[in-house]
């Protein structure tokens, strides 16, 4: 158990005029931990995710990340070049709609290899080998390596997006509703894959979802948001099995049984 957290979020708030996007969010994330941020539409979870992944400038607060050299850097005091580099190497971001996180008009192999080429890999054979390996890991048949994602199903596209993000060995992955819009059987496969990869690679992840079952399956810790505030926070199974706050109790009791 390493002693230093990977990410420190302090007092992060985002206001749109007088409207609250999210308010006063504090937490730390350690390597290998998966944190789920759950809430309904309008809870502020996506706003929060964007604030901590440098996609949206917070109105207040700070987000510090422990770089590979061990030093903590305030993400919003970095140059844009450094932030973009971080996004491409040490971090991953899995979008809800895979088309937002892929280049739809280049082949699957090129999609996976792009990050490698962006950090200077210049050997075609090795890049292709790495891409093939990753396609295998996300259960995409190797003979699809030269096909464009346009010809892939939704679940396949999402798995490709995951491979594209993980190829540079990131330490922290953000996921925005990774199973949203997928068929149930496809969701199950994807979740199992993500779960396995997170375990195998020791990834830290922050998963935004409105689906409590996804949170239960993937995360160690959970944050429940409502109207921009974090109203409950703790061990995932504790929050789901022994919810304390009224809103959490409402959420948990609203899940339909199959």
């Amino acid at each position: 158990m390493s002693d230093n957290p990977l990410l420190k979020v302090s007092g992060v708030s985002k206001f749109y005029g007088s409207r609250i996007g999210c308010k006063d969010v504090n937490f730390e994330l350690w390597p290998g931990e998966v944190l789920a941020i759950v809430g309904e539409s309008g809870s502020g979870k996506t706003t929060l995710l964007n604030c901590i992944s440098t996609r949206l400038l917070p109105t207040a607060g700070s987000v510090e990340y422990r770089m590979r050299d061990g030093n903590f850097r305030d993400l919003y005091h970095m140059s844009e070049a450094e932030r973009r580099f971080l996004m491409r190497t040490d971090w991953g971001f899995v979008h809800q709609n895979p088309a937002d996180g892929l280049r739809m008009t280049v082949s699957a192999g090129a999609n996976v290899g792009e990050r490698l080429m962006a950090v200077g890999d210049r050997h075609y054979g090795k890049i292709r080998e790495t891409a093939t390996d990753w396609l295998g890991r996300v259960e995409i048949s190797a003979d699809r390596i030269d096909d464009q994602p346009r010809s892939f199903s939704g679940g396949m596209r999402q798995r490709l997006q995951i491979a594209r993000n993980l190829v540079t060995g990131p330490r922290l992955v953000f996921m925005d509703e990774p199973t949203g819009g997928l068929d149930v059987s496809v969701q199950a496969r994807l979740l199992d894959l993500v779960r396995g990869l997170v375990n195998d690679l020791g990834l830290a992840a922050i998963v935004v979802t409105h689906d409590l079952a996804v949170a239960r399956l993937l995360s160690h810790r959970m944050m429940v948001m409502k109207d921009g505030h974090v109203i409950e926070h703790g061990l995932t199974d504790r929050v789901l099995d022994d919810p304390r706050e009224p809103y959490t109790q409402l959420l948990v009791s609203s899940i339909l049984q199959v």
């Binding site: 931990e33 199950a188 496969r189 199992d192 779960r195 160690h220 810790r221 703790g234 061990l235």
Partner: peptide, 26 residues
């Protein structure tokens, strides 16, 4: 804190519950 509890569960304390919560595909 949650991290500590997870560590305790991983190394020191086991639990056989009444019902198995199944994970798809494993």
């Amino acid at each position: 804190d949650p991290r500590t509890i997870i560590d305790v569960r991983r190394h020191t304390m086991g639990y056989v519950s009444q019902f198995l919560r199944t994970v798809p595909r494993v």
